[in-house]
Design a protein around this nucleic acid. Structure first.
Length: 436
RNA sequence: GGGCUCGUAGUGAAGUUGGCCUAUCACGCCUCCCUGUCACGGAGGAGAUCGCCGGUUCGAAUCCGGUCGGGCCCGCCA
């Protein structure tokens, strides 16, 4: 019967068996300490028998072991207990030296990012690296749990699409049995279609952007938390997002404490309702404060995003802020514009600790108007197969609705205080990385 | 796509106004010593044609040109 490392302390004085990977060895002469890693964490094994120690000669970190031993309560041991009188069995010997050391913190300096990512396969075995993805898994679970609790139904939409796209970002093109297909840049069309089915729906899936962006916040493939809901207005949509963010952060900080502690992650300051600031207001504040005039610009500069987050944190005690009142210029064809001002899109971007982690908007739900906007704003052909099926949903009745797309890696990155979004991706894809 | 910057053992760094470099240190690896380590400690050892190509020079890790590969910022976005 195998016992997990995390359960060892519950078996004091019992003889147990653990299985896992050799994580660290310390040979002190008469006594040898090894750490064995399994899914529960690490357990320390004390070996005094020379013939047992000899079994490890020439074997490297990563060697897969079975260890039988007596559990002894020991305050000097990590976890308060350890295995004595160990009998080792090498299940899988490893003779190759690990390219990077996994028992101590790996460098996350930007100049060493290449090494970190090149050796990801073994590097992820580092408990500190692992913690990032434990947190990420917790974020996903928390988001799912909250959205399900709000009557959202989870679905999966296809990522292989016909040519037509929502516009905005560059898309990957590929050969599809002689036709041209694209990789989805978001679940946009499908999640809207699903409003007509479930009313409230969401998916957590990868999406693709062929943007040649080389920054600390871009990847060509990333995980999107895509949600859409019917019969709401923008305020109700933003309330839902406030609820989601608060719930996710509370959940993660409740259940993932050990992993957050490894990164000294401070719990984000959150208000029940995430504050809203209009883009014009941000431009004014930023310009007045920094002397760089951005008034009238149609978007926020990255520096403005960082600045307003600092301001919001200091003045409003919130690490999150919604940027509202986006100009029509730069809007997408499916966006809805204010009834009393067609120059303003009913859109809000969620900034979190200096970076944009989500975009929300109300969508134009009236068929005729949507077709007009498709033609006028995107130059799209409503008869194009890629738009036709989408428009059909509207033809057959769509309520006022809105939704958001949130970047899972960016959220994880900012929760943990990582500097590059790629650090929050298991196997990141960017303009010059396709492996591992 | 534009700008800036970097490239030295498996890993992380020092050296980069040319000669003292036969390239230094730390971690890891190998051998030996060590009975409470947890970044164990001690002694010894192996491991680098200084990204690559070309040039200048008596002499190049160091200077020049090219090239390849990273990183950061901007544009764009999640």
């Amino acid at each position: 019967m195998r016992t997990l490392s995390s359960e060892v302390a519950k078996h004091i004085s019992e003889s147990i068996e653990v299985k896992g990977w050799l994580h660290k060895k310390r040979l002190l002469g008469g006594v040898t300490f090894i750490n064995v890693r399994d899914r529960g964490g690490l357990v320390q094994v004390v070996i005094k028998d020379k013939t047992e120690v000899e079994k490890l000669r020439g074997l490297q970190i990563g060697t897969v072991l079975k260890v039988e031993g007596q559990v002894v309560e020991e305050p000097r041991a990590p976890g308060g207990a350890e295995l004595h009188d160990a009998k080792l069995e090498v299940l899988v010997p490893v003779e190759f030296e690990s390219p990077i050391e996994i028992d101590k913190p790996l460098s996350h300096e930007s100049e060493n990012l290449e090494t970190l990512l090149d050796y990801r396969v073994v590097g992820l075995r580092n408990l500190r690296e692992q913690a990032i993805f434990k947190v990420q898994a917790a974020v996903k679970e928390a988001a799912r749990s909250y959205l399900r609790g709000q009557d959202f139904t989870e679905f999966n939409s296809p990522k292989l699409l016909p040519g037509a796209t929502e516009g905005g970002a560059e898309v990957f093109k590929l050969d599809y049995f002689g036709k041209e297909a694209t990789l989805a840049q978001s679940g946009q069309f499908y999640k809207q279609i699903m409003v007509g089915v479930f009313e409230r729906g969401f998916e957590i899936n990868p999406t693709y952007r062929a943007e040649p962006s080389a920054t600390t916040r871009h990847m060509t493939e990333f995980m999107h938390i895509d949600a859409e809901m019917g019969f709401v207005d923008l305020e109700e949509l933003l309330d839902m997002m406030s609820g989601l963010m608060n719930s996710v952060i509370d959940d993660v900080w409740t259940k993932g404490e050990t992993h957050l502690k490894i990164w000294n992650a401070a719990k984000p300051l959150m208000l029940k309702q995430i504050p809203q600031i209009t883009m014009a207001e941000i431009h004014e504040k930023y310009s007045a404060s920094t002397g760089t005039n951005t008034v009238g610009e149609k978007d926020l500069r990255p520096d403005e995003e960082r600045w307003i987050c600092e301001w919001t944190k200091k003045e409003l005690k919130s690490d999150a802020v919604f940027v509202t009142e986006w100009p029509r210029e730069g809007a997408k064809f499916y966006h809805k514009f204010k009834d009393d001002d067609q120059q303003v899109a009913e859109r809000a971007d969620l900034l979190f600790r200096g970076v944009e982690i989500a975009t929300a908007s109300m969508r134009e739900h009236r068929y005729d108007k949507l077709v007009t906007q498709l033609r006028g704003m995107a130059g799209g052909d409503p008869e194009n197969i890629g738009f036709k099926y989408y428009l059909d949903a509207f033809k057959h009745g769509m309520p006022p609705h809105g939704g958001f797309g949130m970047g899972l890696e960016r959220l994880t990155q900012k929760m943990l205080g990582l500097r590059n979004v790629k650090e929050a991706s298991l196997f990141p894809r960017d303009i010059n990385r396709l492996a591992p």
